[in-house]
Every structure is written in C-alpha cells, then in structure tokens.
Design a protein around this nucleic acid. Structure first.
Length: 224
DNA sequence: ATCTGATCATAC
DNA sequence: GTATGATCAGAT
C-alpha cells in the first residue's frame, strides 16, 4: 500500500487510515522500505513521519495543516494497552511577543485543532518499536464544550504572556491546554515581553494538550 | 506511576 | 532561530 498521492477527500483519507489499523510499525515501515530505529530516543518523530508517508500528507516543514485542502491535522498519539495516552500532544508554538489584539478565533491553536485525525499507536517502551501496532483512527472536531475549555486556557495563558509573566507560567496552568518549552534545548532563546514592557529573552514555548483531554477524545470516539 | 521541563532529528 | 514531527527522563 505504497500510496504517495494526497487523498482527495476525507473519506479517502479515512479509508487509508482504517486500512493500516492493526498493522505493526515494522510491517508499515517495510512497505515503504524504511528501517525501524532501535527506539525513538533519537527519532522522536519517526512514527509521525511514517504515518505521513502512508496517508499521503504533505512532507516538509510547512507551518500548515497536514491536509490543508481537507482542513485536517494529523496527529499520532502513543497509548498504553488500555488506550490511555502516554504523552501530551504538541499543538503549535506560542507567541511570546506581539500578543496584543490576539483573539481565540484567529489563534493558531484553534486553527490547528479544528479537525484532527488521531492515529493511536501502542506506545509502551516495553514493546519493541517494530512490534507496536497501529490502532483505529479517530477523526475529531472539538465539541462546543471542548472548544470552550481550550479557549479559556488559551486566553488565560495569552493574557499572562501579554503581561510579561511568561516566566511564571508552568505546565500546571490550564485544564486541558498547557504551555511548555519547545526547543532544541534550554539554551535556545526567543524574544518575549518583560513585566516592565520591554523585550527580553526566554526559552521558546509551545502549546500542548494534556493527556486527560486527549484520553477523553479517544474514549468518546470509541464509546459507541 | 505520572508530570513537567528538557531534549532529539531535520529543513530552511 | 523557527517550523515540522514528537518523546525523553529526572523530579515529584
């Protein structure tokens, strides 16, 4: 199933995603003539890249949805044997400068999460990478309640950033959305607003979805 | 066992 | 550095 063309409809995208459910990562890698890394320590994005290949997502480092023409963002999510997410989900970089006038409706978080195709993959480190199996896909759109939760957290965090308090924002802020470092390492710096309004430097941050939130998404999808 | 801050590879 | 793809691993 070496498909490199981009799907022309959501239906076609879902057919492809359902088609790879149940396969092991080794099986899928073999179909694309890729070797399976020993582990993910130095290949943290390997599974995501593999899914992009199989589903025909646009490769590269473009700052847009994976399936722009379909309005769909692709996310792989590592889960344990009960289906519980093992990691938070990165959404996008957070603006630490020029936050004035930013509104939820126009935010990158809202745009990226308008429609997400979740691909659960066994993520336990006890399972050799190649033996981990791909689960049934979930096409998700935030319910009004979910969007409200996201919006509330986003507005709170953005407000703190605008007040120059980014340094005091920890991953504990937010019910469903959190702010955490997103960089090569802690020496990476980017400009931010200081409390006195001047410009300072701090570690780049990204928005992440907490595991309880993504667990709820997956549970609701498989509830029927 | 879970969470939070830190980190890894790659393209440009 | 910023953007893509995320998971690692020490602290709690």
């Amino acid at each position: 199933m070496n498909i490199h063309n981009s799907p022309t409809s959501i239906e076609e995208l879902m057919d492809r995603a359902v088609g790879m459910a149940g396969l092991s990562l080794a099986q899928l890698a073999a179909e694309h003539s890729l070797s399976v890394p020993k582990d993910l320590r130095r290949d943290k994005g390997w599974i995501g890249q593999l899914m992009e290949l199989e589903l025909g997502a646009s490769a590269g480092s473009k700052p847009q949805q994976d399936f722009l023409h379909l309005g769909v963002e692709l996310k792989t999510i590592p889960v344990d044997d009960t289906g519980k997410p093992l990691e938070t989900t990165y959404v996008c970089v957070a603006p630490l400068l020029d936050t004035t006038g930013l509104r939820w409706h126009d935010s990158l978080v809202r745009h990226k999460l308008q429609r997400v195709l979740w691909i659960p993959v066994q993520g336990s480190r006890d399972i050799p990478l190649g033996e981990r199996r791909i689960g049934m896909p979930v096409l998700w759109q935030p319910t009004p309640a979910e969007e409200q939760s996201l919006r509330q957290d986003w507005e709170e965090i953005i407000e703190l950033i605008a007040l120059g308090k980014v340094a005091s924002i920890s991953a504990r802020h937010g019910e469903v959305l959190q702010l955490r470092p997103k960089a090569a390492n802690s020496r990476a710096k980017t400009e931010c607003i200081r409390e006195d309004g001047t410009i300072g430097l701090t570690n780049p941050r990204g928005f992440y979805l907490k595991t309880a939130f993504t667990q709820q998404i997956l549970r609701a999808a498989f509830a029927d």
